[in-house]
Amino acid sequence: MNPFRRSPFVIAATILVYFFLYAPIVGLVLYSFNASRTNVKFEGIIPAFSERVVMDGSLVKSSPCGPFHWYCDLAKNDDVLEAAGNTLKIAITATILSTIIGTMAALALQRYDFKLKLFSQVSLYIPIVIPEIVMGIGALTLFSQLFQFLNSTLNLSGDARLSLGIVTVTVSHIAFMIPFVTLVVQARLQGFDKSFEEAAMDLGADEWTTFRRVTFPMILPGVLSGALLAFTLSLDDFVITFFTNGPGSTTLPIYVYGLLRRIITPQVNALSTIWILVVFIAVLSLQLIQNRTEKA
């Protein structure tokens, strides 16, 4: 019996689902070259390069960047650049912290018995079984009550007043990222034999050296995939950020959401295209690095 035998039904369904997954993305990318500023209809790709932007009503006839007119426009948009900066800052900080904290917890849960083990293990499932919006409004309530209290008791005023911002977003991101990191690393630790560490200690390495030279290199692939998951979760997050951000801490998803409720120019499509490309390249290269380390 051929193990790779497939029924025509499965193949047809597969093609259909892949089409369903990719059609919207292809459309999105296509419209980023749209000549129409209103972006309602596809008026063809901006045809020509020229000294400066030439418009005919809402149609772009030619542009210094040619078909990539909207991408150039985007580069001039300070709001987008700021949002992109915020998004990266938050994602990188939150990924580093949640990976460290989550890996520690994974080691604890996989290796040790301690009193609050069950509590720690169960609390990891909170972000999975509770809708994100509940966590979002919970964090918002916490921060607003806490800040209200602190601002009034400490008599803070003006710029010193505590308010929602990049810190509250990052801190909340870390909270929902830790469980995912922990669960991923924990799953990878399941096959990890204690005897490797014992061998290192047996050969004269103390606890810290053992961790640095043996444990960490061996669990690194698991930690990396945990970090990768955390990073994409942070980049992708809308709901928690929506409730915990404040002035000056707008992230890209929040920015795009804001645009969708107003006028949409093909700039949004250009932004989306870049986003897809960046994430695609980042994930692909990380995947390749990981494959290499796992093979080695």
Binding site: Y22, I25, L28, L235, D236, F238, L252, V256, S272, W275
Partner: peptide, 12 residues
């Protein structure tokens, strides 16, 4: 598609 942003997917 999963790594494409949630909001962007709705927009698409």
């Amino acid at each position: 598609p999963l790594w494409t942003n949630f909001v962007i997917r709705v927009y698409a």
